[in-house]
Design a protein around this nucleic acid. Structure first.
Lengths: 247, 247
DNA sequence: GAACGCTCTTGATCTGGGTCAAAGTCAGGC
DNA sequence: GCCTGACTTTGACCCAGATCAAGAGCGTTC
């Protein structure tokens, strides 16, 4: 059920694979060149804030490397992560300068950014870009709704398994892996995982221990996880597995 | 925090206010005429399914009247509502014929539909439409993420208050109301509310009783709710109230 | 107007996950 | 090597909300 995005980078875009996928899948050469002009890179250290909710955000861009999170906070301090930005994911809303969420780098992070004004101008002149952004936003919406099911109806164990499955799937496409066994590096602390899953960090820790005890995962270090059987993991997540993996 | 969409219909669009807002806010007259050609109305009875997840959906459209829900279901029968479609909301994904969710009318429903093929053709030829759809989709994404906070971090009482506040705000704009007192008709059964909130119907019922006991709401019939003080209700929902209401 | 089928309310009890507390692991700095 | 601080694990206990169960309200049908 968790839709996997095709990360089919093309060689003609090797200095910034992201730019290609994110906003320019069907652009002509001269359009690519224009994007090139307004593009720049930003680096963030693990733990650093990219932007705070309500602040001015004068760029839009995609993650090249590393992991960032989108979180919402209530006045009393309760927080909920509402999005996980993995390489190739796009942040920023055209036409609205104030950030709607806190964006935080959870690992060292490299982003490919576009300055807002020229990007928006270009979007208005280049129909492909708005159409591409629409597709990407629809994918994000599907992912958010998928996550609503996780938050609203799954047990703690299923929630952990769902998160691991998402990361494993994204990883599996980038790295090499046979269909059923995957290893992955958790880019999140237990606390950040809890924020994503609507749990406490203690519960996260306990459920990870339980999955380990039951052989669903093998821990080789706090953050390094081996999944011997991805199908098993997805079953633990409560997902239907049909069509999930290539045959 | 719950963003309210401006439902500013213009008089030049009186036979189908929705069409205007939904996809053609900036179209020229001839484009409006083309939309007119491919538009038709569909009516559904309360309880009837609009489309099942996975089925072919050969139209897109917006709600004119009534309420529909988007729900996701797990194999074991657990369900989670992932969206509430109130008048002026749009359903359907351009470029993807299979519905991703179950769409169900919870009241008698009128939709203004566009046949898929000509609509998509028009979208590709008319940049305004893709841009408008992008904006609408970004609004939906914000709403979905808002809801993730509700599902993941709010208590049962706060969840109920949040739902009432959403409906009250949408209602308040359409109907007449002074700033602080609103009455509304619940378009959902207790069970549907539970599905939206990630609760059981018993808990929904108990919390509604509690809010009534505490004077936050006044029940005049099972489904008819008077909110004497919307600010109070929003405080119960755990929302920050700044900017929420006109002064 | 009795019987039926919904929807909703309320009570009693149970439990998954939260809360509080303490101890274990590990990387980096000196 | 040992200290420090951040992260993680584990234990004991508790409570919000789930579950199970019984009725109550109320519109429809015949």
């Amino acid at each position: 059920m968790i839709r996997t995005q095709a990360l089919t980078f093309t060689q003609d875009c090797n200095d910034c694979p992201i730019r290609h996928r994110a906003v320019c899948a069907r652009c002509e050469t001269d359009e690519l060149a224009r994007l090139e002009e307004i593009k720049y890179y930003r680096r963030f250290e693990a733990g650093q804030s990219v932007v705070w909710s309500g602040d001015r955000m004068d760029f839009l861009g995609s993650v090249v490397n590393g992991v960032a999170t989108l979180t919402q906070t209530m006045e009393d301090g309760r927080t909920q992560m509402v999005g996980l930005l993995l390489p190739s994911d796009f942040v920023g809303r055209p036409g609205r300068v104030e950030a709607a969420y806190d964006v935080t780098a959870t690992t060292d992070l490299v982003m490919c950014c576009f300055r807002r004004a020229p990007f928006e101008r270009m979007m208005h002149e280049t129909p492909h870009i708005a159409q591409r952004l629409l597709e990407m936003t629809l994918d994000e919406l599907d992912a958010a709704r998928e996550w609503m099911l996780v938050l609203g109806r799954k047990t703690a164990r299923e929630k952990i398994a769902s998160l691991l499955a998402i990361i494993a799937r994204r990883n599996a496409l980038v790295g090499t892996a046979d269909d059923h066994a995957v290893t992955l590096e958790l880019p999140l602390t237990r606390e950040a995982m809890a924020d994503y899953l609507g749990l406490t960090l203690e519960t996260v820790s306990r459920q990870i221990s339980a999955l380990k005890r039951d052989g669903v995962i093998v821990l080789t270090g706090k953050r390094h996880v081996a999944v011997p059987d991805l199908v098993r993991l997805m079953a633990e997540a409560g997902d239907d597995t049909d069509g999930g993996l290539p045959a």
